[in-house]
């Protein structure tokens, strides 16, 4: 299961969504691109362990998230220096950026997958390995926190 063509098709159709979420997690576009490349390479290497092609998308999304989180940990210090490159659009986003960064990991990752990848609650639940209700609760909490920041 999980043949090369199916993984390539997923890459070509959804590359920008994978990259956008990875940028949100990592903070640096280049490091994020590297994480996506690594995640897909790993998916290719481990494709035989996938039991059903139905689960391919969530399986690859999980790999991309894990690679991005690993990349973020490795380059945390560097990211803090390069962050302006990602989102230096204007200072009015500084508050939001800090509020997003301060969210608990689960809320932040749920938010990214929902907003930047447009995944459904069920898909997010599968990617993060949590219940659908947990996704809904995490998303609600994240929106509440960020709306308060946006209003302030």
């Amino acid at each position: 299961m999980g043949d090369v063509a199916a993984i390539e098709d997923l890459y070509r159709r959804q590359y920008r969504r994978f990259l956008r979420v990875a940028i949100a997690v990592v903070g640096s576009p280049d490091a994020a691109a590297d994480a996506v490349q690594e995640a897909f390479a790993r998916a290719l290497r481990e494709r035989h362990s996938l039991r059903s092609d139905d689960a391919l998308s969530a399986w690859v999304w999980r790999m991309v998230m894990n690679a991005a989180i690993d990349q973020q940990r490795r380059t945390k210090h560097e990211v803090s220096g390069e962050a302006p490159e990602v989102a230096a659009a204007s200072e009015d986003l500084d508050g939001l950026r800090q509020a997003v960064a301060a969210l608990p990991d689960r809320q932040r990752h749920t938010l990214f997958l929902r907003h930047y990848a447009d995944l459904s609650y069920d898909e997010i639940a599968e990617v993060l390995g949590v219940a659908r209700g947990t996704v809904a609760a995490a998303l609600h909490a994240a929106h509440e926190t960020l709306r308060a920041e946006a209003v302030a």
Partner: peptide
Amino acid sequence: LDRLVPEPEAFG
């Protein structure tokens, strides 16, 4: 949020 992380223009 869209402005925070704009959609990248990349093809992989």
